[in-house]
Design a protein around this nucleic acid. Structure first.
Lengths: 148, 148
DNA sequence: ACTACTTAGTTCGATATCGTACTAAATGGA
DNA sequence: TCCATTTAGTACGATATCGAACTAAGTAGT
């Protein structure tokens, strides 16, 4: 492994730190007890439509399904989602946003608008938008090559 | 919050997923019980020199110092690092790599060379290297604007 | 030198994450 | 139809993460 390889490592090091920093920022804007991982699920359901299965949500975030069981349990206890049997598959369930869940998501997004705008101003909206397709390509490759 | 703002969100969503996927890949190459967070500390000490304080390491990864206490405890129990009093500051400590720690880091890096090369081939080494300064700039801004 | 404040690190408790092993349902081949 | 295999979800246990409160040591102002 040479210096060029080490630089590749650095890419994932930076991504880890950015993830850490951005999570902390977002977390500080969320109401008490609502974690970033919780919000992410609410946002996913609101953006792409609810009625999805726990497994499909776990796959979307690339977390183990047992983690998603736990997260959904927390959201259900807070009555932000509801779990119903999946009519199409007896083993499965569907996850639906409640009114409170939709509102929690909207409130959270509103609370993050400020930081997000200051971020866009600071590093440049263009620079961020320019990152998006590049990151998506990397994510896609990793997603398709889990056993690399 | 409009569609442009939501796209900014997507950047951090992608980063979270990449972090998750890359951690899983790296984790699968590490020996039993050695977590990515552990390896990252070993790598940090080897790259930038040991003799650093726990707090400085925590800051480097942007994790709470209490998390670093825990991580260092695990590394010390495995005898991969040693903690010594900091001669320059009675409140503080210095963290030093042991021989075993250096070897563990080298072994881990060797084990990751394969996946890393396949990754470089798959998405293109240039594309990855192109990401690095962009990510570093974003990380730096977030680092300097913790209370954004 | 004294006191107030700050800083480094730990302890403790709560909860998130996730691997293993399990149950129940679906699927596919004989 | 039967049975083996696969798949969706959960239960459980181990450990990671992290906030709050604490102790000890350094620092700064008087």
């Amino acid at each position: 492994m040479d210096d060029n390889d080490l630089a590749l490592f650095a890419v994932f090091n930076e991504i880890g730190i950015i993830n850490q920093l951005s999570s902390t920022v977002f977390q500080s804007r969320l109401p008490d007890g609502l974690l970033v991982s919780h919000f992410s699920v609410l946002n996913h359901l609101a953006r792409l439509g609810d009625g999805r299965t726990p497994l499909s949500i776990a796959n979307a975030f690339q977390v183990p399904k047992t983690t998603m069981t736990h997260t959904l349990g927390a959201l259900e206890k807070r009555r932000l989602i509801k779990m119903a049997p999946n009519p199409a598959d007896g083993r499965s369930k569907v996850v639906v946003l409640t009114e409170a869940g939709q509102k929690a998501r909207e409130d959270a997004i509103a609370a993050m608008t400020g930081p997000l705008h200051r971020l866009a101003e600071g590093v440049g909206r263009d620079a961020l938008m320019d990152l998006l397709p590049r990151l998506a390509a990397l994510r896609e490759f990793l997603d398709d090559n889990r056993n690399i």
